[in-house]
């Protein structure tokens, strides 16, 4: 597992108040009941802290899966 993938899993787990191990590789907003708009904002704020810069509004709306979070960390 890449470092970005591990960090993404940890960030998402923190936002959803769950353990990283509880998130499958296919974890997404459609499959996780805890991923509501409040958890989404927690995730965005954690991501912005990790990146050290704000995310553009388009990116905030487009993030919908663990894979998306990983991609953003990889591209930083």
């Amino acid at each position: 597992m890449s470092s970005a993938a591990e960090r993404a899993r940890a960030l998402l787990a923190g936002a959803l108040e769950t353990e990283p191990a509880a998130l499958g590789a296919d974890a997404s907003i459609a499959t996780l009941e805890a991923w509501d708009s409040l958890a989404h904002l927690r995730l965005i704020e954690a991501l912005e802290r990790a990146l050290g810069k704000p995310l553009p509004p388009e990116a905030i709306v487009e993030i919908g899966s663990l894979a998306d979070v990983t991609k953003i960390l990889e591209s930083a």
Partner: peptide
């Protein structure tokens, strides 16, 4: 307030 926190970030 929490809706505004989201709107201020995600909405133009």
């Amino acid at each position: 307030p929490s809706f505004w926190k989201i709107a201020l970030k995600a909405g133009k």
